[in-house]
Design a protein around this nucleic acid. Structure first.
Lengths: 365, 365
DNA sequence: TGCAGGCGAGATAACGTTTGCGCAGAGGAG
DNA sequence: CTCCTCTGCGCAAACGTTATCTCGCCTGCA
């Protein structure tokens, strides 16, 4: 009785009972219609859809999630949203997730394990169906906590074992080989590399891809041209300054990420060296702002959109049984984007205070 | 019977009944304890908390939302996540929302009204408690759709009428006045301004703040030094080129956002002019990458964190009755951040191909 | 024509909370 | 000592779905 009289006001949001009443069917039939259950009579289904349309009904996600146990919510954990690497990743993740009928919950850890803990806690409380851990590196114990809950997880590069874990492989080699060969073709023989922090798996991968590419073309790398950076602007500046101070710097510098490359650009600017006339610089990631630097930065692109797509699909494949013909392959390519920070090597080695230096020359005049 | 025997397996996530059983109280008492209802006996409460702790219980958000009608979910609609303005806003929003016990749902419209429509649809389906519309400008009809549902909304600058609407005011004048006076103190008398697209409220506000500040110090602005840009890098480049081509450019250029300023930097670089020796440049927003440009960009900062804080608090104030002593005031300050793109005006007006141009001089040598 | 079998739709029990209501017990007043 | 009030806990009804079970009807075959 109470049930029968509920929800008669026009302003209230229609519920499944209202639809059922209007279509003169039971709520069960409405539910089946919505969920495309095959056994429902097409004529009834049409009545139901029409009722749904006229009422502007949309099912209550909370109730759905409560009974079905599936929230259609995907978690996305990233390191730091202000790092220009991530916004594009998020964008791609959102696009693909929404296409597949999922909503996303984003959390940034800011490299703080405790914050990471809270992120995971929040996601578990919201009952996410799966989590993409797109941070570089994850603490072991936290991973265990996630693993205990029966939630599918997807990672980049690093691959813990477990039936619910997926890994996205990045083919660093291809793009980095292209970059090295691009420099070699221009005539560079003195190529340096500033790595990321080597405790990160992805940084080690990039460095070894570089070393391999150098070896492939028969070049030998001077040990002091291989330096460890920390993936930050400041790191790039200080390492490049060290290279300059050494008195015998390479003519081209490749870096493990774009922030480091921008740091290199800053150091060179401060040392009054010109890019690409005195030094060629190549970044990695091809972050959006790489186009906006002066000069625009040549960089190895790793498609964030592709990465995001793989992540969502990997989770989806765990959650929804796919046709057996479907063979998942989570692999992301890299490729070189040539802009204006690379050019022919300088005829003579750069020296600080050299007359070839533009701004200094003017200052003296 | 069924009820009594459920959920006895150790691996299952504990339920409110499990807690009640362990604490030897009813589920109602557990619920009241969790929600800090005053009438519960402190000694019972302690038993309940202890049981919650030992079981590692956390309430099911979906069930909670279903019965209480409140999802504790806040929507955040932005223009475009790859625009460097937004990530910091998101970060702040996330921080403050989580502090207040809310989770957030992010959606970017990419300036596409249809996509905006979908965003709103998705948010309504997830039954968000409130939405922050942080895009610059919103379509009227969409706003109406949001208004129909009884959902609190918060906007920036633009203020529709309605009991559920809040507006965050930005004090553009303060920061822009500081910028103009900073240039004036350095000795600039020829100050230009590149505005944003003037159909945007915020762009008009910034321009009028600039005009007012110029008037305050008794300067008069030559009409051709006031140009309309479009808040993009390309816009900045082309407008600056037009100013240079005019043959009588200002010595300092202020812009309506940082992307435009970066465009100006590019145009000047291409024209072989030096910053700040030949031209001073001031941006607006103080986006993260403003620190990374060459030279680092002087810019008027509008705190995204503050903006986000206001947005969350405005929504919260609608959702949760605040003590009467609490007087909300949603206002965001702006202030000048001086970096290295501003300096003394050039002694002589800049002319393209002038001997003062650094790189050209070298090329000739 | 009668009966078995199958299929489609309706009734209803979950899902895990919050919350109004009633009731029991304690304490105070007459 | 009795009655009334007040306080605090438990019972049970929602919340809006999905899924299982059941029942009725139609078809086809003997």
């Amino acid at each position: 009785m109470g049930r029968a009289k509920r929800n008669t006001s026009a302003s209230a949001r229609p519920d499944i009972h209202a639809v059922a009443r209007l279509a003169r069917v039971s709520i069960a039939t409405v539910s089946r219609t919505i969920n495309n259950v095959a056994t429902v009579d097409p004529r009834l289904a049409q009545r139901v859809w029409k009722a749904i349309d006229t009422l502007g009904y949309s099912p209550n996600t909370q109730a759905r999630a409560l009974v079905s146990g599936r929230s259609r919510l995907l978690g996305l954990i990233i390191s730091e949203i202000t790092n220009p690497f991530f916004p594009e990743l998020i964008q791609g993740f959102e696009d693909v997730a929404v296409q597949n009928g999922y909503e996303i919950l984003i959390s940034s850890t800011n490299y703080d394990p405790q914050r990471m803990e809270q992120c995971i806690q929040r996601m578990l409380e919201r009952k996410v169906d799966g989590v993409a851990v797109m941070t570089f590196g994850i603490e072991g114990p936290l991973l265990d906590r996630l693993a205990q809950r029966q939630i599918p997880l997807v990672f980049v590069d690093v691959a813990p074992n477990g039936p619910l874990f997926s890994t996205i492989e990045v083919d660093y080699r291809h793009g980095i080989r292209e970059a090295v060969q691009h420099l070699a073709v221009l005539g560079h023989r003195r190529i340096g590399f500033i790595s990321g922090p080597l405790h990160l798996h992805s940084a080690r991968e990039r460095q070894s891809a570089f070393l391999r590419a150098i070896g492939e073309i028969g070049l030998k790398l001077r040990p002091d041209w291989l330096q460890e950076g920390n993936h930050t602007l400041e790191g790039g500046i200080s390492v490049m300054q060290k290279l300059l101070d050494s008195g015998d710097p390479p003519t081209a510098i490749m870096t493990s990420n774009d922030m480091t490359a921008i740091g290199v650009l800053h150091a060179l600017y401060k040392a009054e060296a010109r890019v690409p006339e005195d030094f060629s610089v190549i970044g990695f990631d091809d972050v959006t702002i790489a186009q906006f630097t002066l000069p625009p930065l040549t960089s190895v692109q790793m498609s964030r959109h592709e990465l995001a797509r793989c992540a969502v699909l990997a989770l989806r494949d765990h959650l929804e049984p796919q046709p057996s013909s479907y063979v998942p392959r989570y692999k992301v390519q890299t490729k070189l984007i040539v802009r204006q920070s690379t050019g022919l090597p300088a005829a003579r080695p750069f020296r600080r205070g050299n007359s070839r230096n533009a701004r200094k020359a003017v200052a003296q005049s």
